[in-house]
Every structure is written in C-alpha cells, then in structure tokens.
C-alpha cells in the first residue's frame, strides 16, 4: 500500500481535561476527497490548522506525505500544501492586482529579490494563468484585488492555493462567499483535481447534502471523530445526535448520497418527507 498523504494518530489539542480535539486518528490516501462536517466549535478549523502546520497539537503524532510534521520539517512540508482559511474579515487595504495575489502562492515567491532575475518568468506566468483559468478568473487577471466581489476574491484565493500544484489541499468552508452554481463548480473542480492530478483534498463544509455526491468520504467531527462514512455508507442517527445534541431533527435525504440515508428502522419511525434536500440541525 502506498504511503498515506495524511496520517494522524491520537492527536489532542487543548488541555487534557477539556480538549478541543481529542484522540483523533485518521488516514487519508492520495487522490482522496474528504469532507469534514460538524457543529460550530467542533474543532474542524483547528484540525485543518494543525494539519497545515500552523498550530501545534498538544499530543499525538502527524505524518504528511510519509514525513513527520514538526517545527523542523514544517516549512519544507508546507511547500506541498495549499491552504485556504476563512478569516478574511480584516484584509488590509493593499493595492494588488489579481495576478500578484496568485503569484504569492508560488513556492518560489518567498525568495530574496535577486532570485527574480534568474527565475523562469514564462513558466510562472503559465502556472498563474492556469490556476486562474481553473477558477474562471482569468479575465480579471489585471484587476485590482480590492475591487472584486467577495465571491471573486474567494476564487482568487483558491487560485493562489492551487498555483503551487499542491499534493494536499486544505479548504476551510471554501464555499462561504459563493452562490450555489459556483459552489457546484467548485466541488466539480476539486473532484477533477483529485481524479486527474491525484491531489488530496480535505474540506470543511456545513452543508453535507451539497458535497455528498462529490466527496469520497465524510468525516463527522465533534471533539472526536464520531464517524467516517465512505461513499455508499450511511451516517447513523446516533452519530448526528451525538454531534449536534438530542434535539436535532433528522430529515431524510436523497437516497443516492453518502451519509444522508436514514437507517431502515429510523426511516419508519420518523415519518419525514423523502427527497428533501437539506439537513435541519437545530443546534445552538
């Protein structure tokens, strides 16, 4: 078996008595597209920051691409990681064209100025064009980043994460600023990158119904990994209740999607309308 891209074993974050993440073990192979769901404060974003090397876990071990992640290996491992976070609220007011924003994603960017004299400008240009084409922002290449809409900015940020052609892509609610046709396009693109480029994608999302026909598996996270549903499997109601609380109202879904099919006995107990396409998690 080939080395997994991500391998977490017994990872804990936060104090032992009141951990934010506890005893988390997970293996993700290359080319796998995983969705992570869970209620607010479940530690989903924290998990991504730990894998991205931004936060140190308090216990446990992490291997990325078969190498141990620690303060010495962090920077070299990060060359193969694309990461899109969700804290874009106070972006500074810096004049920059879309082209320059994507350029910052190249691994060769953070080099001394003289490096620019010897760099292969043409190859860089092509990589940037390609990344912007993937997110359909190539027509805005010379636009000032500050003049773009929230959704367009999000797509440019995604292009910045993609331009280095990472082996591992970590996305924290990438669809937050996107309308639903754009969301679909994004998930399709990610699926394609996994299939064709063997990229591994870990994506935190709230709407399980929207991602379910694209991802290979769904991980249910709330402090611990409650369930890991592969394609064709269901997420049992107990898992939903454990994650979101007792008062959650489980609505049945389209039978084709992962994780959303009610198990047979619940199906008869909870006389819900079928084919309804959203989850109603009434959590606080």
């Amino acid at each position: 078996m080939s080395t997994p891209i991500i391998s977490l074993s017994h990872v804990r974050f936060g104090p032992a008595k009141k951990p934010i993440l506890d005893n988390l073990s997970l293996e993700v192979p290359a080319g796998h597209f995983m969705g992570i769901i869970g209620p607010n404060g479940a530690g989903k974003s924290t998990l991504l920051t730990i894998i991205a090397g931004l936060t140190k876990p308090d216990a446990g071990h992490i291997d990325l691409f078969g190498r141990c992640l620690n303060s010495k290996t962090r920077i070299s491992l990060q060359e193969n990681i694309g990461y899109l976070h969700q804290k874009h609220a106070n972006q500074p007011d810096i004049p920059m064209r879309v082209y320059d924003v994507v350029t910052m994603g190249l691994t060769s960017f953070n080099q001394p100025l003289w490096h620019g004299l010897f760099a292969d400008k043409q190859a860089e240009k092509e990589a940037i064009h390609h990344a912007l084409t993937l997110v359909e922002m190539d027509s805005h290449i010379h636009t000032d980043f500050r003049n773009l809409s929230g959704g367009q900015q999000q797509r440019v940020r995604l292009a910045r994460a993609l331009v280095r052609q990472p082996k591992l892509l970590l996305l924290d609610e990438p669809s937050a600023a996107l309308d639903s046709p754009r969301q679909e396009k994004l998930y399709k693109l990610l699926r394609k990158l996994c299939d064709e480029n063997n990229m591994t994608v870990l994506m935190v999302e709230h709407d399980v119904a929207a991602i379910t026909s694209y991802v290979d598996s769904v991980a249910c996270l709330n402090k611990q990994m409650h369930h890991h549903a592969k394609k064709g499997e269901t997420i049992p109601d107990e898992v939903w209740r454990e994650m979101y609380g007792e008062h959650v109202n489980i609505v049945a879904h389209d039978a084709s999607c992962i994780g959303c099919m009610p198990s047979p006995q619940n199906h008869s107990q909870e006389q819900h309308s079928q084919k309804q396409h959203n989850h109603e998690h009434h959590h606080d």
Binding site: I81, Y83, Q91, M104, L113, A161, R164
Partner: peptide, 19 residues
C-alpha cells in the same frame, strides 16, 4: 521584502505557505 509583503496581505496564508 516579498515575504513581508505576503505577510501584510494575509498573515495566516503566509505562514501556511512556508514563511
């Protein structure tokens, strides 16, 4: 200069991209 610029634009992404 380039790393500083990247940090000014987005500190978190700068750190995640190996700065």
């Amino acid at each position: 200069a380039k790393s500083w610029w990247s940090m000014a634009f987005d500190m978190i992404t700068a750190k995640a991209s190996g700065i």
